[in-house]
Design a protein around this nucleic acid. Structure first.
Length: 458
RNA sequence: GCCCCCAUCGUCUAGCGGUCUAGGACACUGGCCUUUCAAGCCAGUGGCACGGGUCCGAAUCCCGUUGGGGGCGCCA
């Protein structure tokens, strides 16, 4: 049996979109499952919009996700080059064959009106005028192919028109270049987005005209936004890079992308371990809505699966990636990591611990700081803490509870007042741990700072 | 407009003619725990788009309608 060869073929005109990442994932999974090759090919025939920066960004994000390729522009391979802009000779050669065999012709345009075809010919225009090469679509032919997901799909050429395969700038058009590339790269299976279904008959026509056997096709449903329109920036983020910045784990993003349309017994998993059970036919045949909340849930599950060291490493990696150079001590990290869903949330949880000029939330000021007993509570705490020899979770807790009973104020109110005084917020890690991690000196300094804040309120 | 694809809770899905008064997950609501909480545990609300068939029997098969998506570029 022939070795499975699949490819992911992004056009470098922007960042890596989660939809693209999902397509790449399914290709990757299919290649790994079958002991085949996963190939990265850059489709940069749109000279107007393609950039090297975008290409590099896409590769960086793919690597971050862990979707490594066996052949590609950076690693090479036996079927290169892997950038379409470097394969122009190939496209020209086969275009000439198509013209010779009567499957294509030249179209010459009016200089004044580039939309207007002056004449067509099977001879290459020699007068230097702009021309394209057009594929001649046979009339009244039924094109049929078996989609791995959708079954047999038929198109009639009755509804198709001749189409350009070579632009006047000397670059091939997508529908033509993919065929040449997929064939010459020995691609056996083409797993791509559903938006390519209507392109498939055109491509099959080219395969047939060249006397080639088309690969197997599978069209994967698209990812939509909550309003069922294609997922775009309007719905929030779509770039893989954005999710990385937001503090999502690569493993979690991939996990979510995988279960978005692929149902398995256990929703939380490491995709690398799921390779053997992957079967493309199990993918849902229906467009899917991207659910940011579920992604966050999946991420939280993955965070919990990490050991403290692993998570700290991920956190440092996230800090490096986002260019964040604030030092978060391990002790602070430890108490902050429990209830957060993303690395960014973890950072935001940690921020008041490392920021001396922390802000007091409006809610805290209104509900606690402005209350007459706030000063008493804080002053008492300042006194008691100063007198503490043993500064640990037990002694801190005992101290706080003693203050509550002395002052005849509910523990809740005391705790919340102190919490806000020390960290400015009402949602923080456990109070007693927080106080211990801050340390006695910082705690005292912050209590004094809050006392000053009270003064400024009056 | 024409061609193609699709249709189970708000969302992702299980279901492949009887075991479905339709199961799970996220979200949502309520409760528990509790020093806060975005964590944990428990419970609940909520769906087969509609209309025709076929069949003893339909979420499951067929047809139509409606709805959504894609394509019809010298974009990919």
């Amino acid at each position: 049996m022939q070795q499975v060869r699949v490819r992911f073929a992004p056009s470098p005109t922007g960042y890596l979109h989660v939809g693209g990442a999902r397509t790449a994932l399914f290709n990757w999974l299919y290649a790994r499952k079958n002991g085949g090759k996963f190939i990265l090919r850059i489709e940069d025939t749109d000279t107007e919009r393609s950039t090297r920066e975008s290409e590099e960004m896409i590769m960086r994000d793919l690597k971050w996700l862990g979707l490594n390729w066996d052949e590609g522009p950076d690693v090479g391979g036996d079927f290169g080059p892997y950038r379409q802009s470097e394969r122009l000779d190939l496209y020209k050669t086969f275009a000439e064959k198509l013209i010779e065999s009567g499957h294509a012709y030249f179209a010459v345009y009016d200089k004044e009106d580039p939309k207007k075809v002056l004449y067509t010919s099977v001879q290459r225009p020699s007068d230097g005028t702009a021309y394209t090469i057009v594929f001649k679509v046979p009339k009244n032919k039924i094109i049929s192919y078996d989609d791995m997901l959708k079954g047999t799909i038929e198109f009639s050429t009755e509804y198709m028109e001749d189409f350009i395969i070579f632009k006047s700038n000397g670059f091939p058009v997508y529908n033509y270049a993919v065929v040449i590339d997929d064939h010459t790269m020995n691609i056996t299976h083409v797993l791509r987005g559903e938006d390519h279904i209507s392109n498939t008959p055109k491509q099959i026509l080219i395969y047939e005209a060249l006397g080639w056997q088309p690969p197997k096709f599978m069209h994967i449903p698209l990812i939509l936004g909550a309003d069922k329109t294609p997922l775009s920036k309007r719905h929030g983020a779509t770039a893989v890079e954005y999710f990385r910045r937001e503090g999502y784990l690569a493993k979690a993003l991939v996990n979510y992308l995988a279960i978005l349309g692929w149902s398995v017994d256990e929703e939380i998993f490491d995709y690398v371990e799921k390779v053997s059970s992957f079967s493309p036919e199990q993918i849902s045949n229906k467009n899917v809505v991207f659910d940011y909340q579920k992604l966050e849930w999946v991420n939280s599950k993955h965070m919990k699966m990490l050991s403290s060291e692993q998570m700290y490493e991920q956190f440092l990696d996230w800090q490096r990636f986002t260019g964040n150079d604030k030092q978060v001590p391990k002790s602070v990290f430890e108490i902050c990591k429990e209830k957060v869903n993303t690395l960014k949330q973890l950072y935001e949880f940690a921020l008041p611990f490392i920021e001396e000029e922390y802000e007091y939330s409006d809610e805290y000021v209104e509900k606690f700081l402005k209350k007459p007993e706030a000063r008493d509570i804080i002053q008492n705490a300042l006194q008691e803490f100063s007198a503490l020899d043993e500064y640990n979770i037990e002694s801190v807790e005992a101290t706080l509870r003693k203050i509550a009973s002395t002052l005849q104020i509910g523990t809740n109110k005391v705790f919340q007042t102190i919490r806000g005084a020390l960290l400015g917020k009402l949602v923080t890690p456990g109070l007693f741990e927080s106080i211990v991690v801050l340390g006695k000196e910082k705690t005292k300094r912050r209590l004094k700072r809050t006392l000053e804040k009270i003064d400024s309120l009056n």
